[in-house]
């Protein structure tokens, strides 16, 4: 029997597989398809202080081995998330969930984290300083070490729960930003968010996406994600949640070898609603194939 359990900041996950924020809603859509308690956990839809509709459509463009999205943090706002979404989630998921939080000011982030902190279902915070699809916030906090540290410190003050900062790959040096978050009190680093990209329609000769640009995700970005996780693993002591193009159990192992303690699955969930479940089911046999008895022993194994 192989051991797929990992310890993510003091909470044991049955396996390291975590559907990524924005690809799994608040879980209950997927719970209609399968028992989502098979997941390590999942990161729920990015939540902000106020309700947001997000960007105009089209918000989606297909790419070779990936997709671009410019949803723009559509969510009902933290009050409605607590009132409506979390009770529905509780009915179908009995494990601690990861709360993904975004904001447009340092105060916004802290406000939303503080509101959610009292919810016992929440095991971890994943603070998104890397959304490429909103103006005047999101990614702008994740592109400078100082701003990322400021958000981290403000959130740190209002929660004792494990605090992960989700970083953008759209930076010159992601290592400096990860180190700044660690120094400001982050319990871990979550990486990478989508890469800024675009598509142009040859018929209209205009960008496909109404927002012109959006976040590129999917298997095409996996090598970039692996490289960045590998680099950050060498620079910080806190655990890393790795993501970027993860679609198979092999990908999970590769990301863990780069340095990830847990691994998120994003775009794959949108193509195959059973993707995360299938990855979890395949993990033991892929571990056996590569002579891995205990998944937690391979974290950072490539170094």
């Amino acid at each position: 029997m192989v051991n797929t359990k990992v310890n993510l900041s003091g909470i044991i996950l049955d396996n390291p597989v975590i559907p990524a924020s924005g690809t799994f809603g608040f879980g209950y859509e997927f719970a209609e398809l399968y028992d989502i308690n098979c997941l390590g956990t999942f990161s729920f839809k990015g939540t902000t202080k106020d309700p947001r509709f997000g960007n105009p459509c089209p918000r989606i463009a297909e790419c070779d081995s990936g997709m671009i999205n410019a949803v723009g943090l559509q969510n009902p706002g933290v009050e409605k998330v607590i009132e409506n979404e979390l009770p529905k989630l509780k009915a179908c998921f009995n494990k601690p969930v990861m709360a993904n939080v975004s904001g447009f000011s340092v105060e916004d982030y802290a406000y939303t984290v503080e509101k959610l902190d009292s919810q016992e279902q929440i095991g971890w915070f994943e603070v998104n300083v890397s959304c490429p699809n909103v103006h005047g916030g999101g990614m702008s906090f994740g592109t400078s070490p100082e701003a990322a540290a400021e958000v981290t410190a403000a959130c740190r003050k209002v929660t004792d729960k494990p605090l992960y900062i989700k970083l953008s790959p759209n930076v010159t040096n992601i290592v400096d930003i990860a180190k700044a978050c660690e120094a400001a009190g982050a319990d871990g680093i979550s990486m990478i968010n989508t890469m800024l990209g675009m598509r142009i329609d040859l018929k209209t000769k205009k960008p496909v996406i109404a927002n012109k640009m959006g976040g590129f995700s999917g298997p095409a970005i996996k090598p970039v994600a692996l490289r960045m996780v590998y680099q950050v693993y060498e620079a910080v002591k806190v655990p890393i949640i790795g993501m970027g193009g993860i679609s198979t159990a092999e990908d999970v192992i590769e990301m863990m070898l780069a340095g990830a303690t847990a691994v998120q699955v994003g775009a794959a969930n949108l193509v195959d609603p059973f993707a995360s479940k299938t990855i979890i089911e395949n993990l033991p046999k892929v571990m056996e194939k590569y002579n891995i008895d205990d998944l937690s022993q391979i974290i950072g194994g490539a170094h």
């Binding site: 924005g22 859509e29 089209p58 918000r59 989606i60 463009a61 999205n69 949803v71 609603p273």
Partner: peptide, 17 residues
Amino acid sequence: EERMGCGFGACMGCSCK
């Protein structure tokens, strides 16, 4: 009709007011 990501309600890629 709208460009869709998942087609089953997960990604918010085709929202309208």
